[in-house]
């Protein structure tokens, strides 16, 4: 499956300034693995040390949250992923 990943502006310095990266994979996890393979620097933002998605990161698939499936959520050809970061509070 060919999937587009919409890179958040705060991460584009890790993707050679690309805002949209095309990757292949059948699940969100496989797509992110592809992204990390191409741009290894993005790993520490996306993943915790235990290999799970970072606790402040959510991945949206076609404008809908992939939580709770997250990395195992299937994706289809032409889907668009978006990296969302939950930094809020006070």
């Amino acid at each position: 499956m060919s999937v587009k990943v919409n890179i958040a502006p705060f991460l584009t310095h890790l993707t050679a300034d690309h805002e949209l990266v095309e990757v292949n994979g059948g699940t969100v996890g496989q797509c992110l693995d592809g992204l990390v393979e191409e741009y290894p620097g993005i790993r520490e933002w996306l993943f915790a040390k235990n290999g799970k998605l970072n606790n402040v990161i959510e991945i949206y698939v076609n404008a809908e949250s992939s939580y709770p499936d997250e990395l195992t959520k299937p994706v289809n050809d032409g889907d668009e992923l978006q990296i969302v970061i939950m930094i809020v509070g006070g």
Binding site: N6, A8, P9, F10, Y60, A63, Q82, I83, V84, I85, M86, I87, V88, G89, G90
Partner: peptide
């Protein structure tokens, strides 16, 4: 009035 979710980088459709 803080649009805290402005920091999330949510899809524009959302």
């Amino acid at each position: 009035s803080r649009p805290a979710i402005d920091l999330y980088h949510l899809p524009e459709a959302v």
